[in-house]
Write a protein that binds this DNA or RNA. Structure first.
Lengths: 129, 129
DNA sequence: ATAAAATCAGTAATCGTTACTGATATCGAT
DNA sequence: ATCGATATCAGTAACGATTACTGATTTTAT
């Protein structure tokens, strides 16, 4: 069950690395199809899942019912704009201490957390004016 | 478009209030059907959405692809067990300060955050022994 | 009681995603 | 370089959660 090289997988990862807006599977499909017109949506899903499983990309569940994907696998947080739905990387200091706060009165074992922030992005704030 | 009273909606909310494990729409349906056998799954979904919209219950998106519902609308955090999938309320001090941490270098406006914790619950830790 | 309209049960449709199928591409061994 | 095993493919069907539709039934203000 060794992993074999595939042109399609490369294209998917290359496309993802070229974007910093965390596209969905469908957006990946639309774009990769521009240069590889006969690629299948199933192939996109399969490879995104595979790449996420082997840790080369990150799957983001941001509560909008659709999975987003991010080629940046470093630990970082995301902001989701309530107006435009855009997803933006946040540069911020580490907040892992919230796990210790949560652990204090809890008898299970906390190993991680999922956090994202929401509000209005700079772009949408300007648009209102 | 005034809200009218409905027996079905009451039963759904009553059931939800009787549980602290944050059931899914399907679980609500299964249980309410025990006492109201001809209730429709669509009715359950419609009323859960309506109750959430008017703020009487909370919709939880915990990343497992299914919506969970909680009659406790106070702000509180949840723990999701990686082993059994169970959802447990956490008693913990306020961590809203993470929003200020996130805001520091961000030019949009952060109004909220979504956080949940994961790991192994006490029950599953004992089961391993 | 009556009538307008919110709600219902039942079912079909939608959407994101996954599974299946027979064909194709990759890659280590020859 | 070619072979054979098998991972991957394109295409499509199936899936599960959720939403939308429809004509019948309840609710509630008059």
């Amino acid at each position: 069950m060794a992993l074999k090289h595939s042109k399609q997988r490369d294209m998917i990862k290359d496309f993802l690395m070229s974007r910093k807006d965390h596209p969905t599977a469908d957006v990946v499909y639309m774009n990769v199809r521009q240069i590889q017109p006969n690629i299948s949506l199933g192939t996109v899903y399969r490879n995104l899942t595979l790449l996420a499983d082997i840790g080369e990309i990150q799957r983001l569940r941001l509560g909008d019912g659709v999975d987003h994907f991010d080629a940046d696998i470093s630990e970082h947080y995301h902001f989701v704009c309530n107006d435009c739905g855009g997803v933006i990387d946040l540069e911020m200091e580490n907040i892992d201490s919230i796990q210790e706060v949560a652990q204090k009165k809890f008898d299970g074992h906390i190993t991680g957390h999922v956090t994202h922030f929401y509000g209005t992005c700079n772009c949408c704030m300007k648009a209102v004016k």
